[in-house]
Design a binder for these strands. Structure first.
Length: 412
RNA sequence: GUGCCCAUAGCUCAGCUGGUAGAGCGCUGGAUUGUGGUUCCAGUGGCCGUGGGUUCAAAUCCCACUGGGCACCCCA
């Protein structure tokens, strides 16, 4: 049997209904913040991610779906979308457009990781980028918006974590201080941390081993090393959020894996997700355009929601219910019903019109499909012009004319 | 990429220390010529994930592979 490839999956109804609700809610909120959709290719030149995301990151070094095209060029299935959006921004000179470019996307991404809960090889992200502005006001609006999206999607009990990772002026000093302290501290920590102290010192801050927590608490905080500009930026982001009533927790140990992050970083966590408790991550990436060799300035901030995780967290069941089930008894009734169904569908009613059959069969099917109402159409009804409309929940029936039926749905 | 656990009907699972498969639900039909949901009856269902090994005999024991779950690495 041919099956879906490892780490990919089919999203079937009724679960696909939940996905649609989440996406519809997102689009509504994006629209109210004047974000417009951008659709970029799923395939990009490998160099885009190697430069944009960072050659040394795990994503690029071991988790990308990369292959050689027939002409020998190297292509990659996008592992994230920010680099693509920035590429499009540069390629189409969107810096020449008025104001800040506010763009959103919804679509599949690919990473060749070992699958686990909330982590797939083809996964979906809902994300947005605001490019062309450095003001902390933009950061605050982006963060406020993403929270509105999560609420609109039906997520509850989530928690916003906020930090600044500085910029090339101040981060090196912090990194040096951190490494210095780790020389003493690391030997008292877990095996992973001893290794990370060399390979990826920032990761030590994220260690979950409880015995290490006191040591981590004592490590230097990046917030104490921010330069004046980064400090001012961070303070204003916090002030704006507080002013808007957006609750957040400053978490100096919130680190980011991607090279292009500058200053603001944030994350939203939700308890239902096990080890993959992060439902969304984002931050400012003023250095990205430069990393892509662009000649233009393109400071930006964005986020991306792990849609698979969001859907899992809202935990709702989809429904298969149909508004009206039409039960035609006999061929003549079916022909009559098909015209009626077309008219109702044009009014926006969801109508199920099965092939003609025995009434018992048809009602059974209507019940299984969760139909709210069933219209019974046989020779009697066609001749008299009085249709039988059955309320499935109660079983009560009444007689309606064709015009009455149409007007019921016109009003609704 | 690493570690641990798992794989029997469409779904959820039973099948003790080896003797070649069961239940519930679902699905189909009937009791009911044009009246569903409840009930009753009957039927449909499985190369026991794949390949190899041990054995007179393997769903059951061993190995490998594939897929899944959880955690690690890392990350959304």
């Amino acid at each position: 049997m041919i099956r879906a490839v490892k780490g990919t999956r089919d999203i079937l109804p009724p679960s696909s209904e939940v996905w649609n609700r989440v996406e519809d809610a997102s689009r509504r909120v994006f629209r109210t913040y004047n974000y417009r959709e951008i659709r970029t290719p799923i395939l990009e030149q490998t160099a885009l991610f190697a430069r944009g995301v960072g050659q040394e990151t795990d994503i690029v070094s071991k988790e990308m779906y990369t292959f050689e095209d027939r002409d020998g060029s190297s292509l990659t299935l996008r592992p994230e979308a920010t680099a693509s959006v920035m590429r499009a921004y540069i390629e189409h000179r969107l810096d020449q457009q008025p104001g800040i470019q506010k763009l959103y996307y919804i679509g599949p991404m690919f990473r060749r990781e070992r699958p686990q809960k909330g982590r797939y090889r083809q996964f979906f992200q809902i994300g947005a980028e605001a490019i062309g502005g450095e003001s902390p006001a933009v950061d605050a609006e982006v963060i406020e918006m993403v929270i509105e999206i999560l609420k609109a999607a039906g997520l509850e009990d989530f928690h916003l974590l906020l930090n600044s990772v500085g910029d090339p002026n101040c981060r090196p000093a912090y990194m040096a201080a951190l490494k210095e302290r780790l020389k003493d501290a690391a030997p008292r920590m877990c095996g992973d941390c001893q290794r990370r102290a060399d390979t990826n010192p920032l990761r030590v801050l994220d260690c979950k081993v409880s015995a290490d927590q006191p040591v981590i608490e004592a490590l230097p905080s990046i917030l104490d090393y921010l330069c004046g500009e980064c400090r001012a930026h961070f303070d204003r982001v916090c002030a704006y959020l507080t002013g808007r009533g957006v609750p957040f927790e400053v978490k100096p140990r919130l680190v980011r894996g991607l090279d292009y992050y500058r200053r603001t970083t944030f994350e939203i966590v939700h308890g239902s997700l096990g080890a993959q408790n992060s439902v969304l991550g984002g931050g400012r990436y003023d250095g990205l355009a430069q990393a892509l060799d662009a000649k233009i300035q393109a400071p930006g901030i964005g986020f991306s929601i792990g849609e698979d995780r969001l859907v899992m967290s809202v935990g709702e069941e989809g429904t298969l219910a149909v508004d009206l089930f039409v039960a035609p008894i006999g061929e003549a009734a079916f022909r009559h019903a098909s015209l009626l169904a077309m008219e109702l569908r044009r009014l926006g009613v969801s109508v199920e019109l099965p092939p003609e059959g025995k009434l018992k069969r048809l009602l059974e099917l209507a019940n299984k499909l969760g139909a709210r109402q069933t219209l019974i159409l046989g020779d009697d009804e066609i001749q008299s012009g009085n249709y039988t409309l059955r309320e499935m929940a109660s079983g009560s029936q009444r007689t309606v004319t064709r015009d009455e039926l149409i007007s019921i749905w016109k009003k609704a």
